[in-house]
Structure formats: structure tokens, C-alpha cells
């Protein structure tokens, strides 16, 4: 190809500003349009985020791995039979299907007096990738740091799960505290981000105001041990003060809470 006299792309002379933000600035222009490299980068990121939403969590593999770490596992499924109904009907994702409900009802949890029953739910949410990558190492950290007299089984793996599904699970298992590890809605930059939502004395009908959230657990975000320690700190405070949610903000989680509020506030 003959060399062009002028370069096709115009570079923006404010490259030095890129260091201040992850926002995609100073990208240059093809005419007045986005250069191909950036277009392809965007499209690839979007495709990865879509995969994270639509690829089903390999529940059997995760259960095997967790059993290998000496967790006892219960597998449950929400009322949403598939991904499409999950996306269209958030209310289905907040309820167990009949079979799962019966299955958990049949468990008669034995909780020694004075023990705290912490039930952990692992839910696919909107990113199976987040669970696949982060659930096991996070659970190991939680187990490592949990107070001796606390009870941490079974761990419940829930398919097509929304956050509030943990309320029903926690109630059926007589949990003092339920914490759900759930895949966040994937962003372009972070298809595998995981959040923990913790509720004291969970029961069907708890609201978002009753929960505490630890968000952005991923390779570029919060580390497993920090997240596990935050959770256990919140859980101990919840037990001590007999509440969770907005009344139980710690300094460290203020930021996350503010961001969640912002999501709601935009609409």
C-alpha cells in the first residue's frame, strides 16, 4: 500500500491527562469518529460482560471444589427456570422453587446454645464469572477467620439468584446472619466483580435497607482477606447490636453504600 502523506488518525495533544482517570480520554479521532482500536476494545469488553451474564455457573464443579475444602454443600434453584425469565422477572429470582424450599425445610439445623449460625449463600447473580473466580478463595478466607464457636454449614449454592433469595434461605436454615456472595452486574472493565450482602435475622420481606454491602471484590478491587474481615467485622457488630443495614455503617463501607445509593438515586 502506498504510504499516505498525512496520518489518518489525529492524536489528541492532551495525553498527559490520561494519568488522572480510567475514563477513556484523549483517544484521538478518525475524522471526528472513534478510532478502530478503541472501537474494538469497547466491543470486546462488552462481549465479555455479556458472556459473564449469560454463561451458566458450573454448579457441580463448584460444589466439588468446595467439598474438597470441607464445606458441606446444598444446591438450590430460584423460581426463575432460565436466564431469560431471570432477567425479565426479578421477583422469581428472589424466591426458591418448590423443590428447593422443601429440601431446605427438611434440614433441621442443630445449633449449640451460644453459637452463631452464619449461613453463606453463593449465588450466580449477574456474573457467573465472578463466582467461578472468587467464591472459593473468599470462602476459604472467611472460614479461616471465623470465630471458633460460630457455625458455618451448610454453604448453599443458589442458581438464578437475586440478593433477596438469601432471606428465604436464611430463614429456613434459622440463620442468625445470612451473607450472600453474588456476581455483580458486569461493567465494561470488570466482568467478574463480586459483592457480599449481609443481613441480620433474615426473613422473607427484609428490605435493602436491612442489608450491608461489601462490593467490588475482584482482582482489581477488594482483596479476599480484606473482604472476609469486613464481613466478619460487620457480622460481629450485627450480633452485638442485633441489627444490620443502614444503622450499621462502618467507615470502610461508607463508600460502597454511597455508590449503591447513587445507582438507586439516578432513577
Amino acid at each position: 500500500m502506498r504510504k499516505l502523506d498525512k496520518p489518518i488518525l489525529r492524536r489528541d495533544p492532551w495525553q498527559q491527562l490520561k494519568r488522572f482517570t480510567r475514563a477513556r480520554i484523549a483517544l484521538g479521532r478518525a475524522g471526528s469518529s472513534l478510532p478502530t482500536k478503541e472501537l474494538l476494545d469497547f466491543t470486546l469488553s462488552h462481549a465479555m460482560a455479556r458472556d459473564a451474564v449469560h454463561l451458566a455457573l458450573n454448579v457441580a464443579a463448584l460444589a466439588r471444589e468446595l467439598e474438597g475444602q470441607e464445606f458441606s454443600i446444598q444446591l438450590v434453584h430460584s423460581k426463575a427456570p432460565d436466564r431469560m425469565s431471570y432477567l425479565l422477572r426479578p421477583d422469581y429470582g428472589r424466591q426458591l422453587n418448590k423443590q428447593s424450599r422443601r429440601q431446605l425445610q427438611a434440614i433441621k439445623p442443630v445449633i449449640p446454645s451460644g453459637a452463631v449460625n452464619l449461613v453463606i449463600v453463593v449465588g450466580d447473580g449477574l456474573s457467573s464469572l465472578a463466582i467461578e473466580r472468587h467464591a472459593k478463595p473468599l470462602l476459604i478466607e472467611i472460614k479461616k477467620n471465623i470465630p471458633e464457636q460460630w457455625k458455618l454449614d451448610p454453604v448453599v449454592i443458589a442458581s438464578q439468584a437475586r440478593v433477596a433469595l438469601a432471606d428465604e434461605i436464611g430463614e429456613l436454615l434459622a440463620a442468625d446472619i445470612v451473607a450472600i456472595l453474588i456476581g455483580e452486574r458486569p461493567g465494561l472493565r470488570s466482568p467478574d466483580s463480586l459483592s457480599i450482602y449481609m443481613t441480620y435475622a433474615p426473613k422473607v420481606g427484609c428490605s435493602d435497607a436491612d442489608r450491608n454491602c461489601i462490593s467490588n471484590i475482584c482482582s482489581e478491587g477488594l482483596s479476599y482477606d480484606t473482604a472476609a474481615n469486613k464481613l466478619l467485622w460487620l457480622a460481629k457488630e450485627a450480633i452485638r447490636r442485633k441489627l444490620s443495614g443502614v444503622a450499621l455503617k462502618d467507615e470502610g463501607s461508607m463508600q460502597e453504600i454511597a455508590i449503591i445509593d447513587q445507582h438507586r438515586k439516578l432513577l
Partner: peptide, 11 residues
């Protein structure tokens, strides 16, 4: 910037 909001995580 690039239609990609890095705070609200949407396009």
C-alpha cells in the same frame, strides 16, 4: 468519555 461511564458502570 467513549460512552463508558466508569462510575455508574453503564454505557
Amino acid at each position: 468519555p467513549r460512552a463508558d461511564d466508569i462510575m455508574l458502570n453503564y454505557q
